[in-house]
């Protein structure tokens, strides 16, 4: 979780990510930043996030992103 938070804070400095309830609806993560984030996550956690995984439910909150990472790591 700490590594994820570090990646997110590097991507969007100054955002209090754990406090956010909807990163997509609040336009904190747009499609550009999602692509950048996916690249970072793939490298950092050795997973493969595909277009099928790129849905708002998986990027809505820090917890949702973390759950997706764990699910893909288990696959």
């Amino acid at each position: 979780m700490e590594e994820l938070l570090e990646i997110l804070e590097n991507l969007k400095p100054g955002v209090d990510f754990p406090a956010q309830t909807d990163l997509i609806e609040d336009h904190i993560l747009d499609s550009m930043s999602v692509v950048m984030l996916v690249g970072e996550l793939n490298d950092a956690f050795d997973i493969e996030i595909t277009p099928v995984d790129v849905v708002p439910e998986n990027f809505k909150t820090v917890d949702a992103i973390y759950a997706m990472i764990q699910r893909l790591s288990d696959d």
């Binding site: 499609s31 692509v35 996916v38 690249g39 793939n42 490298d43 996030i49 595909t50 277009p51 790129v54």
Partner: peptide, 20 residues
């Protein structure tokens, strides 16, 4: 276009390697 073009291209393996 975002779901079927943008993500398909930007998350493709080729671009992942290029980006790295």
């Amino acid at each position: 276009l975002r779901d079927y073009v943008f993500y398909s291209v930007s998350l493709s393996k080729g671009f992942a390697k290029l980006s790295k």
